[in-house]
């Protein structure tokens, strides 16, 4: 049977992708950002994931304002990196586990999550940057080491889905994966954040304390954390900090009982606080030993 064994929370700042693509990760500005992912890349390799279920948002790249789905599940065979205005990122095309994606779509809708099904889709930095930080440099002719099922969440037009809704969607994704008949190791990524505001006169807002308590509570106080109202994100973590609701999808897909394996936090990458955490189901850790 397919099983979800671990979760990754991770910012997806576009400038991180630009830094990797232009080979400046050793510069003093960027070095501390990437150092924190060295352990993560080793962990990712050892994890031998067959599939990454990747929760992210599109940044008015592939989805324009004509149609704004709250939850859009990638069911296409593959997803090419999109041109965001300065050419597509030179990273591999993302390949789907299409049969599992179809199974999840079917299961979620019967579980009363009325998601949108995407049979064609390109992906922006929201998806490709987490792939790059977790798997390292890959060129256009390389392949990502595992398959990816994208779940695209609207966090651009207010309101984003509530943290509670995201958390419960994570639980429904878990039920869907658990009922799939192939033996697969699935890791869930929740991406975005942490505190940042990109717009208007308050741009540049960073709230390290708030981010830290978010990371602290994710392991054992996750249910109460998922009840955080939108206004708290907007006021405390910046208008774009509301992206963090996507981390609750990841947390909901894990067991209640998890262990924090790794954490990284750094300010700034461009306008943003970079946050990252790795959580493992304790049950699956025992199974490994």
């Amino acid at each position: 049977m397919a099983r979800i064994t671990a979760g990754v929370g991770c910012s997806h700042v576009p400038a991180i992708g630009v830094a990797m693509d232009s080979g400046i990760t050793k510069q003093s500005y960027w070095e501390p950002v990437f150092e924190g992912f060295e352990k993560s890349r080793e962990w990712m390799k050892a994890q031998k994931a067959d599939v990454v279920f990747l929760v992210y948002n599109d940044h008015c790249t592939v989805f324009d304002a004509t149609c704004i789905p709250t939850f859009a599940l990638g069911c296409a065979p593959e997803f090419a990196p999109a041109d965001e205005g300065w050419g597509p990122r030179p990273v591999p095309v993302v390949k789907n586990h299409q049969r599992l994606a179809s199974h999840i779509a079917h299961s979620l809708i019967l579980d009363e999550f009325d998601i949108t099904i995407m049979n064609e889709m390109e992906v922006d930095h929201g998806l490709t940057v987490p792939m790059s930080v977790m798997f390292g440099d890959k060129g256009i002719d390389d392949e990502w080491p595992c398959l990816v099922i994208p779940l695209c969440v609207n966090v651009v037009q207010y309101p984003a889905p509530t943290g509670n809704r995201c958390y419960n969607l994570g639980k429904a994704i878990r039920r869907a994966v658990d009922s799939f008949d192939e033996d697969l190791n699935v890791v869930v990524f929740g991406t975005g954040g942490m505190s940042h505001q990109l717009q208007y006169k308050r741009a540049g807002l960073i709230n390290k304390e708030w981010d830290t308590q978010f990371l602290n509570r994710l392991t054992s106080d996750h249910v109460a954390l998922s009840q955080t109202p939108h206004i708290d994100y907007l006021r405390e973590a910046g208008s774009e900090g509301v992206e963090m609701v996507m981390w609750h999808v990841m947390r909901g897909a894990l067991d209640d009982d998890v262990e924090e394996i790794h954490r990284h936090y750094h300010v700034p990458a461009s306008n943003t606080a970079v946050g990252h955490i790795i959580l493992e189901n304790k049950k699956d850790q025992k199974a490994k030993i």
Binding site: Q199, R202, A203, N207, E236, P268, A273
Partner: peptide, 29 residues
Amino acid sequence: INFQQLAGLMTGMGNEAYRAMMIAGGRSP
């Protein structure tokens, strides 16, 4: 113009002052 340069314009701080604020930990809440 990239996101950070745009923030420098929108806040009226200019690119250098804005970038320095971010390196110093960002705008406090």
